[in-house]
């Protein structure tokens, strides 16, 4: 696969590099701030305050947490497979951040405009499974192992529905390029034409990043902390931040795929993009505040018996519609 650079002059390459770094930092910082945001929002919905002591509105809580987590003992269990144990948290950060490469924040702000952008997204999210399953396996701990196994099953299953759900969008846009997909929604957002698709993607996305209510891999009541039971210090921090980066990613993908990305009146594109993304981020937090965790078998049967038929039906209908209109 070729990652083409649109302009080959030195300055544009430099700009490209700077842009990449800015996006990377923005994503990581946003993910970190999400920790604070989530705690404040959960507080709000549970009639509490949440962290409000460090800095204005408790914003510096993130800094305090970071300092704490950096200074914590980074302990590797003597019984763990050391190399794999170290690699696992890096994998989740890496795949999540790499996916952001193809996300078009606006027409111009992106890392790479890839013609198979959507496939790259799916590929990266498939790789993300490794982080969890390797982390769970290398810990040599029954809870971590079970957590890892659940994750593998959950992520692989829901990836199927996610992919199938997106086919409708692809068919409508006629391209895997995310830019093209956004531009194809200039008239009508995909959420209206592809509503079942949107719902399935929302659910499957939630399951992919194992957020509540699909946080079975780390269900603390039964698995202590699931796949990251043995992790501590910054390695745990990477799993943690990785999860929040996942939220940002899924939210921005929903924006791009179903809500017209940067498209919107009056305001500049990036603002529209951020508003839409933030809406879904908040929605994910709300989901966590309001939903219960299903049982593992319920999760699987819901996927295969409900989501899959809907997704397939949606493909058929969309295909028929596309054929009919073309």
């Amino acid at each position: 696969m070729m990652i083409g650079v649109s302009d080959s002059t030195f300055f544009s390459a430099l700009w490209q590099g700077a842009e990449t770094i800015i996006i990377l930092l923005a994503v990581v910082i946003a993910s970190a701030l999400l920790i604070w945001l989530e705690r404040r929002l959960l507080g709000l919905w549970q009639d509490r305050y949440g962290p409000n002591r460090v800095g204005p509105f408790g914003l510096l809580q993130v800094v305090a947490d970071m300092i704490k987590i950096f200074f914590k003992e980074d302990w590797i269990p003597p019984f763990a497979d050391k190399a794999v144990f170290i690699i696992a948290p890096a994998v989740i950060m890496l795949t999540t951040l790499l996916t952001f490469a193809v996300v078009p924040f606006t027409e111009t702000i992106d890392v790479v405009n890839l013609n198979i952008g959507l496939l790259f997204v799916l590929a990266m999210s498939s790789l993300g499974v490794y982080a969890v399953i390797l982390g769970g396996w290398s810990s040599d701990n029954k809870y971590a192992m079970l957590g890892g196994l659940r994750t593998a099953a959950q992520m692989i299953s829901y990836e199927v529905f996610m992919g199938l759900a997106l086919l409708g969008v692809v068919m409508l846009a006629g391209s895997f390029n995310l830019h093209t997909i956004v531009e194809s929604q200039a008239g009508l957002w995909n959420v209206l034409t592809q509503f079942p698709s949107f719902v399935i993607f929302l659910i499957a996305g939630c399951a992919e990043i194992h957020r509540a209510p699909f946080d079975l891999p780390e269900a603390e009541q039964e698995l202590t902390a699931g796949f990251h039971t043995e992790y501590s210090g910054m390695k745990f921090g990477m799993f943690f931040v990785g999860e929040y980066a996942g939220i940002v990613l899924i939210s921005s993908l929903i924006t791009v795929l179903f809500f017209g990305g940067w498209l919107g009146p009056v305001l500049p594109g990036i603002v529209w993009f951020l508003i839409k993304t933030m809406f879904f981020i908040i929605f994910f937090v709300l989901l966590r505040a309001a939903t219960f965790r299903p049982r593992y078998d319920q999760l699987m049967s819901f996927g295969w018996k409900v989501l899959l038929p809907i997704a397939l039906a949606n493909i058929a209908l969309t295909a028929a519609a596309v054929v009919a209109t073309s």
Partner: peptide, 17 residues
């Protein structure tokens, strides 16, 4: 449920500061 939880945004907070 999601709606009801969302409505909690407008409730008074129980926490004593």
């Amino acid at each position: 449920t999601i709606w009801m939880v969302l409505l909690h945004s407008f409730r008074k907070r129980d926490t004593v500061l």
